[in-house]
Design a protein around this nucleic acid. Sequence first.
DNA 1: AACCTTGCCAACCGCGACCGT
DNA 2: CACGGTCGCGGTTGGCAAGGT
Length: 281
Amino acid sequence: MGRPPCCDKEGVKKGPWTPEEDIILVSYVQDHGPGNWRAVPANTGLMRCSKSCRLRWTNYLRPGIRRGNFSDREEKLIVHLQALLGNRWAAIASYLPERTDNDIKNYWNTHLKKKLERTTCTAAPPPPKKESAYKGQWERRLQTDINLARRALREALTVDSTMSMSPAAYSNPADYALSEHNISRMLDGWALGKPAGAGVSNPSAADSASASTSELTDCSSSSASNCAAPALWSSLLGCQSKGAVVGEEMPLSAIESWLLLDDSNEQSVAARESLLRNYPF
DNA sequence: AACCTTGCCAACCGCGACCGT
DNA sequence: CACGGTCGCGGTTGGCAAGGT
């Protein structure tokens, strides 16, 4: 069986958006905020399905989106994150707040994939290096971060008596492990345990702050992973997540440094090991 | 100039997850 | 618990533009 497509109703317009439609959508979102997409066509008279409205907003009209060429830094981040996370474009996009998952996906499919194929064809096959171990560890870590962030956000948004519960109050230990209480406890521990040089500002956090300068940016209505992950990194690394000076020259954050490290460089590997020691999982 | 090929990207489609009833 | 509605994600496609023949 299968659900009929949401956009096959008669009178639902498809294809490219006109400037007039864009204006209507932007005006509506400015008034009501993003979210509740089902109400958008009904309230605006747009002959578009809710899905199309959401997509247009998130991929094109949403403020804070940077279009055009990807920088080397962004390329490297995408390549590394893709290697770690696979084709989880939304998760990858959460580390590049100014780029949409669609943009990153398109860029990967049209540029980076071919680029990598070219380089892997010409380059010698990679030795069975420690990288795989790092990859596995960091992939798990990143995935856990996303899951924790999602869960923490959900819990934070829920006025819940379990907030003050002790571990013993949880019937399932896994529930406590993922509880907001435990997460904040862990974050405190990580922040306290940060190395002397770890108090660097996080460009991701700065990007988030930059994106959030627009009053239209509404984290609560978008994917939790999109908003929570950079914030989590900020917490993890002891960075200021709010009030980051936008536009100021920022040193690379620990995570970004790691992502940009050259695998073939022993110094880089040593630096990575150091990071792993400083931020034990 | 006309036609064909290729590359790019906005938009669509289908599926799974989540949430309320 | 089951069900239906909604949302978000990832894969895919359609159409346009640029370049080549």
